[in-house]
Design a protein around this nucleic acid. Sequence first.
RNA 1: GGCCCCUUCGUCUAACGGUUAGGAUCCAUGGUUUUCAUCCAUGUUACAGGAGUUCGAAUCUCCUAGGGGUCACCA
Length: 461
Amino acid sequence: MITTRFAPSPTGYLHIGGLRTSLFSWLWARKNEGQFLLRIEDTDLARNSEDAVAAILKAFDWVGMSYDGEALFQSKRFDVYAKYIEQLLEEGKAYKCYMSKDELTALREEQMAKGERTRYDGRYRDFTGTPPEGVEPVIRIKAPQEGMITFNDGVKGEINIAASEVDDFVIARAGGVPTYNFVVAIDDAQMGLTDVIRGDDHLYNTPKQLVVYEALGFKIPNFYHVAMINNEQGKKLSKRDGATDVMEYKTLGYLPEALLNFLVRLGWSHGDQEIFSVEEMIELFDPKDINKSSSNYNLDKLLWLNAHYIKNMEHDKLAELLVEYGVDIRTHEKKDLILNATKERGKTLVELASQINLILNAPTEYNAKNFKKAFKEDTPEILNTFMNLLKEAELNEVADYHKVMEAVVEQKEIGFGKIGMPLRVVLLGSMTGSGLDEIMAILGVDETIKRINRAIELINA
RNA sequence: GGCCCCUUCGUCUAACGGUUAGGAUCCAUGGUUUUCAUCCAUGUUACAGGAGUUCGAAUCUCCUAGGGGUCACCA
């Protein structure tokens, strides 16, 4: 049984990097028919908010990732942590430290000046005297003082960190509120985690948590530390580099399947395969294939994937999704025609919506430059001929509209561009866009003729 | 600065000591298309540098350089 988790601290939206590590965790649990748990790390601090929790859950919901059971809130488990603190104190594995914050700062500055690693010096580790007055103590855990702390990371291999690098860190603040590394170890153990997949930035927390595991006699899970996602320049990802909030991708018109496909290939691969459905990801994912090195963020591929998924999506579903982007063709009788004509031209749902609107809404004004480019002396005459033939033609399918255009070309002995260009400008107000026959088939004869006549009126005026 | 980790086309990546170093994206060119897009084809571009080990190194070792992470009574 594999149990994994995602443990965000609710201080803001779900970050794209957080989504990737949770995706890895989720896939690994699902692949093994295990459990994917959610834990909210809200050990105090005014920074936490319920809105942030809701935002994270909303993002999970959007991409279709679900967690098992109830979300665990650390803020509701202070009594559990307090009990363990008490236990460690009794067993002599932790102790009260009366060093004031000022003293600690002074120590740190001194160490810094000497170019040493800043660390607590253990002055109260074996203290038996009378504690100084007016200082509310913190609780520190006894970390090993010599030797190595070693663990096997599923991504990076064996990690050795000298015990001298890990000091007797605080497990409970003055006032008794427990600290991060302490509660994480307890919760991970009690939740039955077998595999902890998390960001590289937690690598240094691992030896500290190991100290807690050791002191409390908990079973140690497998750790996987996934390298960070950087921007294209290899620097830390910031808002300047594009969207970092997962939900922003929805706003921009990306499909969750494209985003997940994009993220799963950032730091993980399965041979040469690029396209992964969620089912395939679950089937093929294995943390042993996670890369050691960090990857840089570049949206080109996401856009390509998004276009791919739009092109291959069922029309009913696509129509459903488009509603949020201001286009409702769910019950449109020519829904398939519309989507066939436009879906290869929109790389995002936003673009697709605008392509559809371009056809469905008659142009309200014409760009003079386009008019000038497309309209020549003989254009009105050609368009009139076209309209006449159109009225008489039997129009059952898209190709029939094309035949009418061909007839005009033949009759007038002109090139296709002589009718195509002006027709496009007249119908769409644009020089580019979907196939003319498709556009006209969507509009129907009446609307097509209406738009042509209106444009001719305008040019005569 | 100490410690830890990382380094293959611009970007994402493949390669379990022996390959003309592969794929994808991007870009360029050509084809298809009334336009644009799609689609198809072709092309440019990479083993950070240096020493070893080996018949043979992108793969193993060491050094150098560069990048990242981390050093809280934050999480």
